[in-house]
Design a binder for these strands. Sequence first.
DNA 1: AGGACTTACTTGATCCATTCAAGAGAAGTG
DNA 2: CACTTCTCTTGAATGGATCAAGTAAGTCCT
Lengths: 144, 144
Amino acid sequence: MLDATVHRQLLREASLRVTAPRLAVLRAVDEHPHADTATIIAAVREQLAGVSHQAVYNVLAALTEARLLRRIQPPGSTARFESRVGDNHHHVVCRSCGAIADVDCAVGKAPCLIASDDHGFAVDEAEVIYWGLCPGCAAVQRTP
Amino acid sequence: MLDATVHRQLLREASLRVTAPRLAVLRAVDEHPHADTATIIAAVREQLAGVSHQAVYNVLAALTEARLLRRIQPPGSTARFESRVGDNHHHVVCRSCGAIADVDCAVGKAPCLIASDDHGFAVDEAEVIYWGLCPGCAAVQRTP
DNA sequence: AGGACTTACTTGATCCATTCAAGAGAAGTG
DNA sequence: CACTTCTCTTGAATGGATCAAGTAAGTCCT
């Protein structure tokens, strides 16, 4: 609610029409960082019943294209989205339950790492995924 | 062919039965680094016609579990596999055509990076994906 | 405000990588 | 060589994501 005007402004600045589904998606992703598509659809429908899943997919694609959202997809998981963009931060992912947390990038702007040999590729970003166990899953493994 | 005895030995050491489909998959992945599942299935069938796709999926899962193969899955792509394991190297991926190349890790053993704040996660690996354009796609973009 | 134009959403079907399930077949063991 | 267990084949099902066509809504301009 508080951010609705901010969200409108973000959409305008990206030359995107302001629609109820888009505002609902922006709010849902704000409130559920790193959520998968199914979770986002459910959260959107709590605000706005009857939104089609196709609309949510369209909106997520459009907002990702416009760099208002960032799409992350750890191997073995479905697509997830976050609204924190522009600071080139990274993620730590739990191998057991799939939980995701943000990790600040020490450099802050991409690419934060330089490849030892880039094979002639024009590299513009270095994405880092830290793999491990979240505190909860680590505790379960120690005392099974 | 040359490596068949090596492959047999690798399977034995992993307590896996030596079967024709498994040898064919190991060879196919050796010869097609970073190939997706469809490519691997085709390559396997060139050596051994009539292998079911299910068998290839089973073998890939078993060999990945046994750490004889490594599964990589850049967002937006289907699963890919490589036989280079154990040296914690990274990858550079072309945003345009999906081409993948290896990038040696300066450290060599995981985790090669330390998170600024790991949120209590027990991190055992830092996976790095360098994003950019391969030489071919970069050339096309400059002269469209 | 109202109309025209453009973009977005709904509905319903479809795709395709991957997985599930059950029975036939082959690898390893003594 | 026969037994046990794991692996492969066959065929179907799952589910995230996408495609297509028609309707609805946002934006611009007068």
